[in-house]
Computed example of a mutant assay.
Amino acid sequence: MSLIIAYIGKKGCVMAADKRRIGYFGDKENLELLENELYNGSILNDDDFLDRASELGISVKITDDASKLKTVGNCIRGEVSTKGTMETKRRRIYGTTNGYQIIELLGSQTQSRNAGKSGIIIFGNNFAKQLAQNLISKRLKGFKSLRYMGEVFEDILREVSSKTPTVGKNFDVLMQQPNYDDSEAQKHLNLTIDHDIKVLTKFRQDLTEQLVQQKIDIEMANKIIDEGSIGHVVKIDGNMLLIKLNDKTQALKSDGTWKQVAAPGQNVLMFTKSADVELGDEVVIENEDLCLKKDKSSLDCDIILCSL
């Protein structure tokens, strides 16, 4: 759902891209049918797209705020991506003066990497690419300036967007003009791309750790006891009580690490304001309040009480 047009030459690099992103959900066969109609040019505009999706029972979300271009070092990076069930596929072009590289990634793993010196590169579905190529051949007659190329590319994106909903009506245009020869360009591209992929790898690792932690948080949160028996009093020292946990209750740290501090059958410290506490008194949680069962007098602790 993208169209990126890049020019790389002796004077620098310019890229233009739309900002559309489309998410849709529904029956697999109907999704494939809808995609085929989108990519062969049968669906001409957003209204027709939404109507056809509705006919096929497909839920659609269209946004036009996705940034597909980024300045990285003295390069411009353009990216199109497809999210699969397990991994995200990315196709990137990095361009600078006198050089470019095209990278294909699965997750953060490089699947292919090809270099070039100059030219016009187009990323997009076949229908949008063909439209763009035809317009470029008509409108560009030799190099004029990067600014002029960027304006032409933006006009082409605008015209293509009027003929297919796979391309949005908002655009970004970026230019870079460092002073590199062929060799210097590829050296800079190699350093920039290697670092950029390392950043992506670190981002994915951090994201994976966050998702794992979120899963743990959800699982443990579901185990927090909000009703039921906890244990009984085995020692009294002023307002401090030692509570022996029953065989279904464990105590965990309250600092977010979910580290166990007491297993079932072990003792934990609690505090009371009641003067009427006796050995053997049962400790319970009722209506999410920790208290003595006999008189509902409140207890305090700095742990989280969870079931096994």
Rank of each mutant, 00 (worst) to 15 (best):
L131Y: 13
A132H: 11
Q133V: 12
Q133T: 10
Q133C: 05
Q133A: 13
L135G: 06
L135C: 10
L135E: 14
L135D: 06
I136E: 07
I136T: 07
I136C: 02
I136G: 08
I136V: 13
I136R: 06
S137R: 14
S137C: 07
S137Q: 15
K138G: 04
K138D: 10
K138W: 00
K138V: 04
R139V: 01
R139E: 12
L140S: 05
K141M: 01
K141H: 09
K141D: 10
G142M: 07
G142A: 07
F143P: 05
F143T: 08
F143Y: 15
K144T: 12
K144G: 03
K144E: 13
S145G: 08
S145T: 11
S145W: 04
L146G: 00
R147C: 01
R147G: 14
R147H: 09
R147L: 10
Y148N: 09
M149D: 11
M149R: 07
M149I: 11
G150M: 09
G150R: 09
E151F: 01
E151C: 06
E151T: 03
V152W: 01
V152P: 00
V152G: 02
V152A: 00
V152S: 05
F153R: 01
E154R: 11
D155N: 04
D155I: 00
D155T: 02
I156Y: 03
I156R: 05
I156C: 05
I156S: 03
R158I: 02
R158P: 04
E159P: 04
E159N: 07
E159M: 08
E159V: 12
E159T: 10
E159D: 11
V160G: 04
S161Q: 04
S162R: 14
S162V: 04
S162A: 13
S162Q: 13
K163G: 12
K163C: 09
K163D: 05
K163H: 15
T164P: 09
T164Q: 12
P165E: 14
P165L: 13
P165R: 14
P165K: 14
T166N: 05
T166G: 06
T166D: 01
G168Y: 06
G168K: 05
K169A: 08
K169E: 09
N170C: 11
N170P: 05
F171S: 13
D172G: 06
D172P: 06
D172E: 15
D172R: 08
V173H: 08
V173A: 10
V173F: 10
L174V: 03
L174F: 03
M175D: 03
Q176K: 15
Q177F: 03
P178N: 06
P178F: 09
P178R: 11
P178S: 04
N179D: 10
N179H: 12
N179A: 05
Y180N: 12
Y180D: 06
D181I: 00
D181Y: 02
D181K: 05
D182V: 09
D182P: 00
S183C: 00
S183V: 14
E184K: 15
E184G: 02
E184M: 06
E184W: 00
A185K: 05
Q186D: 11
L189N: 01
L189M: 07
N190Y: 10
N190H: 13
N190I: 14
N190E: 15
T192S: 12
T192P: 08
T192N: 08
I193R: 14
I193H: 15
H195M: 07
H195P: 01
H195Q: 13
D196A: 14
D196W: 06
I197L: 09
I197E: 07
I197H: 14
I197A: 11
I197Y: 06
I197V: 15
K198L: 13
K198W: 06
